[in-house]
Simulated assay, not measured.
Amino acid sequence: MLLTLAWGSVFFPGLFALSTWWLRRSRPQWTKNDCVMISTRLVSSVHGVLATGSGIVIIYSCRDVMTDRHWLAREYVWFLIPYMLYDTYAMYLCEWYKTKEEKRRHSFTTFQNFLSKNRLMLTHHAVILLALVPVAQRLRGDLGDFFVGCIFTAELSTPFVSLGRVLIQLKQQHTLLYKVNGILTLATFFACRILLFPFMYWSYGQQQGLRLYQVPFHIPVHCNVANAFLIAPQIYWFSLLCKKAVQLFGGPQGKKDG
C-alpha cells in the first residue's frame, strides 16, 4: 500500500513536470498556460489508459463477479489517490496561469473562479477520495473486484476528452481530427460511463440466473442508490457533450468551422 502510494505520488507530478519542461523547450512559441494545460491533459490521458487497462485485466480475470479476486482491484485504488490530489492542484495551476496570461489580478478571486468553474469535477474528486476509496478498500470486504474493474474502465473516454480540450486550446476546432475525436468521445463516454451500469447489472444477472430488469430487486437497496449517485453526473456530462456535438455538426458554429 505505502509503496504504491509513493509510486503514484512520484509518477503523476513527475510526468507533469517533465512534460511541462519538454513543451517549454520544444515549443517556445507556446505560452506557459498552453504548456501547463497540455501537460495536465497528457497526465490525465495516461491515467485514463492505466485505469482502463487495469479494469480490463480485472474484468477478464474474474469469472465469478462477486467472489473472484485480483490484486489490481486494490492496488490501483492506492495509485489513484495521489492522482486525484495531483489533478486538483493541476486544475488550480491551470486557472492561475490563465489569470496571469490575461493580466488579471491574482487574488482570492482566482481561487473563487477556480472553485466556481470546477465545482462538479472537484465534487467528483471528493466523492472518489472520501466515499469510493473507503468502499473499494475496506467496506466491501473481499467481494466485488469485478465491479471495481468495471468502474476503472469508465476512464476510457478520458484521453479523448483531453485531446478535445487540447485542440480547443490550440484553436484547432475546425480540423477533421477535432470532429473525429468528438465522435470517439461520445462513443466511449456513452459505452463506458452510461452503458457500464446496465452491463454490471446484466453480468450479475447472468451469474444468478436473473433477467436484467429483475436484478435491481435482488440486490441491496444501497447498491442501487450508490449506482444512481454514480451515473447521475455521467448523464449530465454526456448531455453537455451532446450539446457540443450538435453545435459542432449541426449548428451555426459547426457550419462556420466547416
Score class of each variant (00 low, 15 high):
Pro134His: 09
Leu143Tyr: 11
Pro134Trp: 09
Phe152Gly: 03
Ser157Phe: 00
Phe146Val: 11
Gly144Arg: 10
Gln137Tyr: 05
Phe146Gly: 05
Phe147Val: 03
Cys150Met: 15
Pro134Val: 13
Glu155Gln: 12
Ala136Gln: 10
Arg140Leu: 05
Leu143Arg: 12
Ala154Gln: 02
Thr153Val: 13
Gln137Ala: 04
Val135Lys: 11
Pro159Asp: 00
Ala131Ser: 14
Asp145Cys: 12
Cys150Lys: 03
Phe147Ile: 02
Asp142Trp: 04
Gly149Ile: 02
Leu132Pro: 03
Pro134Ser: 11
Leu156Trp: 05
Thr153Met: 04
Thr153Gly: 03
Leu130Asp: 10
Arg138Ala: 14
Ser157Pro: 06
Phe152Asp: 04
Ala131Lys: 09
Glu155Gly: 06
Pro159Asn: 00
Val148Cys: 03
Thr153Lys: 01
Arg138Glu: 13
Val133Glu: 01
Val148Arg: 02
Phe146Leu: 09
Asp142Asn: 14
Leu156Val: 12
Gly144Tyr: 08
Gly144Asp: 05
Leu156Met: 15
Glu155Ser: 12
Arg138Ile: 15
Ala136Tyr: 13
Leu132Phe: 14
Gly141Ala: 06
Gly149Leu: 03
Arg138Tyr: 15
Cys150Asp: 07
Arg138Val: 15
Gly149Ser: 06
Ser157Tyr: 01
Ala136Phe: 15
Ile151Trp: 07
Leu139Lys: 08
Val148Trp: 01
Pro134Gly: 11
Gly144Glu: 04
Val135Arg: 11
Thr158Tyr: 00
Gly144Asn: 04
Ile151Asn: 08
Val133Arg: 03
Val148Ala: 06
Val133Asp: 05
Ala136Leu: 07
Ala131His: 10
Phe146Glu: 12
Arg140Met: 08
Leu156Gly: 02
Leu139Glu: 13
Val135Gly: 04
Val133Gln: 04
Phe152Gln: 05
Leu132Ala: 14
Phe147Ala: 12
Ser157Ile: 08
Leu143Ala: 08
Phe147Leu: 04
Ala131Val: 15
Asp145His: 14
Pro134Ala: 10
Asp145Glu: 09
Glu155Ile: 07
Leu156Tyr: 02
Arg140Ala: 06
Leu130Ile: 14
Thr158Lys: 00
Phe152Glu: 05
Leu139Val: 14
Ile151Met: 14
Ala131Gln: 12
Phe146Trp: 14
Val133Phe: 07
Gly149Asp: 05
Ile151Ser: 11
Phe152Val: 01
Leu130Pro: 06
Gly149Val: 05
Ser157Val: 10
Leu139Asn: 09
Phe147Arg: 01
Glu155Met: 02
Val135Leu: 15
Gly144Ala: 06
Val135Pro: 05
